[in-house]
């Protein structure tokens, strides 16, 4: 075998599969003039998003499956706004035929999950700022035993019984324990530095507020160990004060 033959057998390509995130323009009304205006407005919001962006045109949501749509004009319109049509999603025979003329592949209708994509963050609705939603506190009346974990998501945690060693209390807000606190208590775990821990008897394995913590070894040296206290954060120092 000559050198040339060997070279000839060397593969010149590889086939690969890949998942790409692609923008889909789903047309719901056959009104190209309005599309032109609305696209222009979008482009203004985020010009970078609309420069040579690959696009799939989805036409199956159009009334009458998009019969009578001028595909040539639609593709040209998209091109004008920086969107380059890669393929078509359609089920109407005329459109499929038209796609053939433009040499555009036709994709099967999608059953997959799609989320709506907004090129620019919507300008915040100028209306009144929304009231902070009130999340109810989580109230536990039975003892929390070692190995149990209780999380009050988005609010306060109130425990009306003893918290055993090895138990873990978590809250996005404050933690109140009306009994001995012998386990771990982590308040403001999403980073709220104003969260506090209140307890009738401080005997905790660990207390933490917004990530600043003290373990039992340090807590035991506190003069308030075993007493009713509140624990708050100032700067990054946990302050323990008598209740």
């Amino acid at each position: 075998m000559s050198q040339a033959d060997l070279l000839d057998q060397e593969p010149v390509f590889q086939l690969k599969g890949s998942m790409l995130a692609i923008t889909i323009l789903e047309l719901v009304q056959n009104d190209l003039e309005r599309l032109d205006r609305q696209l222009a407005a979008k482009v203004e919001q985020a010009p970078a998003f609309f420069s040579n962006t690959p696009l799939v045109l989805a036409l199956e949501k159009l009334p009458e499956n998009g019969a009578g749509l001028d595909l040539a004009e639609l593709v040209a319109l998209c091109r004008k706004h920086g969107l380059r049509t890669l393929a078509l999603r359609a089920s109407q025979p005329q459109l499929i035929e038209a796609a053939g003329r433009f040499d555009l592949p036709v994709l099967p209708p999608s059953g997959a999950r799609e989320r709506s994509l907004d090129p620019a963050a919507k300008p915040a609705p100028a209306a009144k700022p929304t009231e902070p939603e009130h999340r109810p506190s989580r109230v536990v009346t039975t003892p929390i035993r070692g190995g149990q974990q209780v999380y009050a998501q988005g609010g306060d945690l109130i425990v009306m019984a003893a918290v055993s060693p090895g138990a873990e209390l978590l809250a996005d807000g404050h933690i109140h324990v009306y009994g001995p606190l012998r386990g771990r208590a982590l308040a403001g775990i999403k980073g709220n530095p104003n969260a506090r821990i209140f307890c009738q008897q401080l005997a905790a394995e660990m207390v933490s507020i917004a990530g600043s913590y003290k373990v039992a070894e340090d807590l035991r040296r506190e003069p308030l160990w075993g007493k009713a206290v509140q624990i708050g954060l100032s700067g990054d120092v946990l302050n323990i004060t008598r209740l």
Binding site: T142, P143, I144, R145, G146, G147, Q148, S164, P165, G166, A167
Partner: peptide, 24 residues
């Protein structure tokens, strides 16, 4: 005492009564 405490936690959460929401 610690192991008993753990067991009490399981009695309160992993028994049939707990799973069916009956009287503990």
């Amino acid at each position: 005492v610690r192991d008993s405490d753990r067991m009490l936690g399981l009695l309160a959460s992993k028994s049939r009564r707990a799973e069916n929401g009956e009287e503990p």
